[in-house]
Design a protein around this nucleic acid. Sequence first.
DNA 1: AAATGTGATCTAGATCACATTT
DNA 2: AAATGTGATCTAGATCACATTT
Lengths: 246, 246
Amino acid sequence: MARAKISTNTHGPAIRGVDPWTPSAGKMRQFLSEEERARLAVLASIVRLNKGEEIYSEGQRADAVFNIITGVVKAYKTAPDGSEHVTAFLFKDDMFGLSEEGKYTNSAKALTPLALYRFPVPALRRRLAKDADLEFHVICKLLHELRETQRHAFLLARRRALSKVAMFLQLLENLQAGRGERTAEIYLPMNRSDIGEYLGMSLEAVSRAFRGLTTRGIIKSRDRRHLKIADRSTFDEIAADTTNAP
Amino acid sequence: MARAKISTNTHGPAIRGVDPWTPSAGKMRQFLSEEERARLAVLASIVRLNKGEEIYSEGQRADAVFNIITGVVKAYKTAPDGSEHVTAFLFKDDMFGLSEEGKYTNSAKALTPLALYRFPVPALRRRLAKDADLEFHVICKLLHELRETQRHAFLLARRRALSKVAMFLQLLENLQAGRGERTAEIYLPMNRSDIGEYLGMSLEAVSRAFRGLTTRGIIKSRDRRHLKIADRSTFDEIAADTTNAP
DNA sequence: AAATGTGATCTAGATCACATTT
DNA sequence: AAATGTGATCTAGATCACATTT
């Protein structure tokens, strides 16, 4: 893993999410003040990774926590038989590096070229102990992640493939909007197999679901990684569908 | 919701979990010191509820967070078509009352008679702002919950019914052990339908999975809510199985 | 009476095999 | 060459209907 000095044109670590207590119409906001970001930047080194590189793997000693500057990360678990389950896709301003008893509970890999802040755990803990405001903002972010993970579980409980995929696209769209990016087109930074592993379905079923949505005129793909919602109301209906029968 | 004075034989609010950073062989520990528990107790009222009572429902103003003294809580979401998804089962020393923009993100109901600490959110926030140690312990608990929720998602991604149910039983067993209860027999405080809604399968499939495990001599039920693992190695194999083919 | 179990039927999606696209 | 798409086949579990247990 290559490391570099902190570049001058960044503003420091950032964590965003929807506020747990204040109404904000679903808008995500930056939890850290400029000052907090500066104080955190001192602790961090910047790491750059190529697409496909592994950041850490499950069971390794968890000596650092990461914050994404740019790029997309896949967090996943590998079963003994080699099958993978994608725990989360992580984007700009997300934190990752979840551990239990000092060991990472999953693996993490770069889906795109990546720039990360890397925080050694002891330094971060010392900083948190001195800074109640920062701790509070970490709590806000964790509450946000907890809700996201519950949404993931909710999605996985869906029985219909079309519904899972539509809900997944909604999720990506919301995240894009939350990051302030244009939302006319949904961008998929991951491949079909990653999507399948996130949704608990085979990649063939993912492919057929995309076809199904396209055939029915509900989505329109520019290429395999860029698509639009063409029929919003039907799309939303399918995403909300919890049934199994036709 | 009936409220009562704080009784004298309790030691105050408690939150437990596996430490994120210190090796502890999977053992859960109490994150709060006696002093912290006492400081928190001042903020809380005690609420007692009967089995089946609703604690709060999705979308309501989230003005309180709860901590379980005794009993079991079901957190769930209801879809427009009336189908339910169980987000989590919550036990002694768990916190609940997750909110987004000041509104509860799910509903919560008593599965057994319940005693709860109830914390008004503003008082809790003021307390947290003054107490970095307490904040840190809340972070530890949230990290624990985040891992639990990821496990739930992992379980939901399983394709085989037997595997889901076996993994669920493992989970209950671990929680029981973590609470320091005897673990020779697994106790199910919830009904088959709740289990189905947690595992993303029909209650009939749950019933058949129990029968399947019983027929094959892997579990032994005393009654519908008490069972033993009779063949541990086969049980663990089934719980770890990620395949779909026979 | 409500919860749970069980049988019969049906279908969505897994799996396998190969074609097509990037 | 790897990722993706598509067709054919098969089966696990959903659904419906009713029996049994608590």
